[in-house]
């Protein structure tokens, strides 16, 4: 019994690694660029790699560099990081709904690796997710992030400019690739994505709030609105059936 469980966890781990490969590709140019900018900002190689290892959050890491360059104090940088990353709370709460009941320790371990990308891949997967899958997925993404941050610091602008530019689309293409199959099979997904995109555009392009808050608020508004409409409709349908 114990060994079949171990085998299942191992297979799930492998599946996680496979799902993580597109993230690993997508992280490559961003991490390389991060390493390069960290170097020009004046960070040491050790500091650059340490930040990628401990923080593992692309947008926040980029922002911290630009704040450092402007001479902003570390308390403000930490506070900004918190605001930029608060959206992960929403993502973890959502993913928790389809996560199997692994031990607290396992959950505390894999939750470290929740990013926009690992969340998107895990959340759009069929069925449930467990610790084996999450560790495989997150470790693949994490290894790429840490490795290429260090490499970016060392080789920097070594990659051809045109390839660097075209690779900047990679993560967005991945998001599209995760979203479209669900859009085709469920019209509700179209409303959810379109509404959130519209809210986010208004908030960020109208400069009403920072990107961190904007993504949280746009997501919540869209998810609540669509759910409310659906509850209302199914409620009325049930009444009509009676």
């Amino acid at each position: 019994m114990e060994s079949t469980l171990a085998v299942k966890q191992a297979t799930d781990f492998k599946k996680g690694v496979q799902s993580g490969i597109s993230i690993a590709i997508g992280y490559m140019p961003i991490a390389l660029t991060f390493g390069l900018i960290a170097k020009t900002t004046g960070l040491a190689l050790g500091e650059t790699v340490m930040m990628s290892m401990l923080v593992f959050a692309g947008a926040a890491q980029y922002i911290s560099l630009s704040l450092l360059a402007q001479g902003i104090g570390i308390f403000e940088i930490i506070l900004t990081t918190f605001i930029v990353n608060i959206r992960h709370f929403l993502m973890s709460a959502s993913l928790n709904e389809k996560a199997e009941e692994d031990s607290i320790g396992a959950r505390m371990g894999y939750s470290f690796g929740i990013t926009d990308e690992t969340f998107s891949v895990a959340a759009t997967r069929e069925g449930t997710v467990n610790a084996g899958y999450m560790f495989g997925l997150n470790l693949t993404a994490y290894s790429s992030w840490v490795f290429f941050s260090g490499l970016g610091f060392l080789i920097g602008a070594g990659l051809p400019q045109t390839l660097q530019e075209s690779m900047s689309v990679a993560l967005y293409a991945m998001f599209v690739g995760l979203l479209v199959p669900s859009m085709k099979s469920n019209v509700k997904v179209v409303y959810l994505a379109a509404l959130a995109a519209a809210f986010n555009s208004i908030f960020t392009m109208g400069e009403l709030m920072s990107t961190g808050w904007s993504i949280v608020l746009a997501t919540l508004l869209s998810a609540i609105l669509v759910e409310t409409v659906e509850t209302f409709k199914t409620g009325r349908r049930t009444e009509a059936d009676e």
């Binding site: 929403l90 998107s120 967005y172 979203l179 959810l192 746009a218 998810a223 669509v226």
Partner: peptide, 10 residues
């Protein structure tokens, strides 16, 4: 609903 809304916003 959150995953699909997040993807739209991202």
């Amino acid at each position: 609903n959150v995953p699909y809304a997040t993807l739209g916003a991202l």
